[in-house]
Design a protein around this nucleic acid. Structure first.
Length: 271
DNA sequence: ATGGGCACCTGGCTGC
DNA sequence: TGCAGCCAGGTGCCCA
């Protein structure tokens, strides 16, 4: 489900109820996530205080007074802050029970999400260590993108979704950014002018920022930590709009397949 | 190095 | 009504 805006919305949603709180216990009902939840998790986190809630790419980092938890929401995961006694639903895989009487509860039907504990700096964890720049930070600019695209034959959309180039841009926002920049998603990355890549870079930042303000995009099951959906869906120009008229020129939006993912674009607006 | 494809998993929808 | 088939906000890993 979640791309960067949904993960950031989740981070902002859980921060007030979790930062500064102490973890009483970890309750793991289903350890079979993308990676097995360590059996000794409880011993690591019990009585630890959550000192900060951060995000790197689509990973949420619960920084503890000793060590850190690394949470990924996968395709269908969500975190909610609930009274600890709230009855459990299907796919509620783990809780972090807090000293406030609330718990942080993870639900994930597809189990592509994950929960890691690390005793060290989470940014040095093998999964995070080699990640590319954050799209909303200054290091991601037109110059950087032009350098990353130089000599590359892959389609620009796939380059944009490559976490070794830039993190956090998933299928929805890659499609939307390319529409905003008027670039054909199939165009080889290395054959796009620096000026257009600069515009694409701006489009990525704009669409992600706007989606964060709207609380993310809910297509199916994403909810924020209070149970609310995201409202960016109504502002999508192309994603899941195959056959519908382009909002700018009325040409039917086209759907194709790139790297086993659906791509949506306007054949008239995007070149 | 680069690119392509597969795997993991459940649930919802479509069409026969 | 039932069921097979396909699709879905991700991403690590293996192969050529």
């Amino acid at each position: 489900m979640p791309e960067l805006p949904e993960v950031e919305t989740t981070r902002r949603g859980i921060e007030p109820a979790t930062a500064g709180r102490r973890i009483i216990a970890a309750v793991v009902r289903e350890p079979r996530l993308r990676w097995p939840v360590p059996a000794d998790l409880g011993a690591h986190v019990a009585n630890r205080r959550i000192s900060a809630v951060r995000r790197r790419a689509k990973y949420l980092l619960l920084v503890l007074d000793e060590g850190a938890l690394i949470v990924h929401l996968g395709m269908s995961g969500s975190l909610r802050v609930l009274p600890a006694a709230t009855p459990v639903l299907r796919h509620d895989h783990f809780d972090l029970v807090l000293d406030s009487g609330q718990c942080l509860r993870f639900n994930d039907p597809r189990r592509f999400g994950s929960l890691h504990y690390t005793a060290d700096d989470p940014l040095e964890h093998p999964l995070l260590r080699r990640l590319a720049p954050e799209p909303l930070e200054a290091a991601f600019d037109g110059t950087y993108l032009a350098r990353a695209a130089r000599g590359r034959g892959v389609a620009i959309k796939q380059l944009l979704m490559n976490a070794a180039v830039v993190v956090g841009v998933g299928n929805i926002y890659a499609n939307e950014a390319l529409f905003r920049a008027r670039i054909d998603p199939r165009r080889p990355a290395g054959r796009i002018s620096p000026a257009r890549l600069d515009r694409l870079c701006t489009a990525v930042k704009d669409v992600l920022s706007e989606a964060i303000v709207a609380g993310g995009t809910t297509l199916r099951d994403y909810v924020d930590p209070t149970g609310m959906p995201g409202y960016f869906r109504q502002r999508l120009y192309v994603y899941e709009r195959a056959g519908e008229p382009c909002r700018l020129c009325r040409t039917p939006i086209r759907q194709i397949r790139q790297g086993q993912r659906s791509t949506y674009y306007c054949p008239a607006c995007q070149r």
